[in-house]
């Protein structure tokens, strides 16, 4: 791969993360447990969609084959997607949505904090702008993990179950492959493996306050960097891409 191809790949990973999680949050619309959360979830989803637009547009430019944000979002099949497996997992109940969000928010904050001093000015700009949003996202999801963990017996149990069910998707966030390493070497990307201790410290602190146990599960899955996804992604795409596929000649 050329450096340009690697940057394209790297941007896809970032953009796809935001888009797929934003799409998942959109599914909550009108169904949240309290009206304030309907607003919060659409607000966070909107931030994520906004991030994905900036990142995918840039990816398309870097690739130089005339693909714009929509071409990339609506005309790739599952194996061309690079979002983390965690983010395509179904919403489940509110605890599961918050666990997924919390794991990612803490990760994305650390990742974008580092990216905001990227040598690639465009990446640095997107990261710096997004970091303000992510600061709010992280506070929102942390607060809910604490409330649900230290709320009622029922909410505690649901929150703990959610953490346990998603814990095996965590290690993938910190994987490094040749693309990541090349981006680090160029001063563009982040050494995500090095973020793990900070992630652990933040997550442990919230879990302790929430009276929740750090999950201890024996499994972990990975593969998104190579386009190997769970079955869920196909359905997300089938829904999201439907109009563009049904009417390929139309402009919207």
């Amino acid at each position: 791969m050329t450096n340009q191809e690697m940057l394209f790949e790297y941007l896809l990973r970032l953009g796809d993360n935001s888009l797929i999680l934003g799409q998942r949050l959109a599914e909550w619309c009108g169904h949240a447990p309290i009206l304030e959360e309907d607003l919060a979830l659409t607000n966070i989803g909107l931030d994520l969609i906004g991030q994905s637009r900036m990142l995918l547009s840039y990816a398309g430019e870097v690739e130089g084959k005339g693909r714009d944000e929509d071409r990339l979002a609506f005309h790739r099949d599952t194996q061309a997607w690079r979002n983390l497996l965690l983010l395509e997992q179904p919403n489940g109940d509110f605890a599961k949505t918050m666990a997924r969000q919390f794991f990612f928010d803490v990760f994305q904050y650390l990742q974008y904090e580092a990216l905001s001093s990227s040598k690639d000015e465009r990446v640095a700009g997107i990261a710096a702008k997004s970091l303000k949003e992510i600061t709010y996202h992280r506070r929102h999801s942390s607060d809910w993990v604490i409330r649900l963990g230290d709320g009622t017996e029922e909410s505690h149990e649901k929150m703990q179950t959610a953490l346990n069910e998603l814990w095996g998707f965590v290690p993938e966030m910190f994987d490094m492959d040749a693309v990541d390493e090349a981006m680090v070497a160029d001063g563009i990307g982040v050494d995500v493996a090095s973020l793990r201790p900070a992630w652990d410290a933040q997550v442990n602190a919230v879990l302790a306050e929430a009276t929740l146990k750090r999950p201890d599960v024996s499994w972990s899955v990975r593969g998104s960097r190579d386009g190997k996804h769970s079955e869920h992604l196909g359905y997300i795409l089938a829904e999201m891409q439907f109009l563009q596929h049904a009417y390929p000649d139309a402009k919207w």
């Binding site: 888009l19 909107l46 994905s52 999201m240 919207w252």
Partner: peptide, 23 residues
């Protein structure tokens, strides 16, 4: 239609609109 909006821009606009309505 939020999950099926035909472009990312339309999705973002619709999401903002629905959020306004909740507000």
């Amino acid at each position: 239609w939020l999950t099926r909006a035909p472009t990312l821009k339309r999705k973002a606009i619709l999401m903002a609109k629905i959020q306004d309505e909740g507000g």
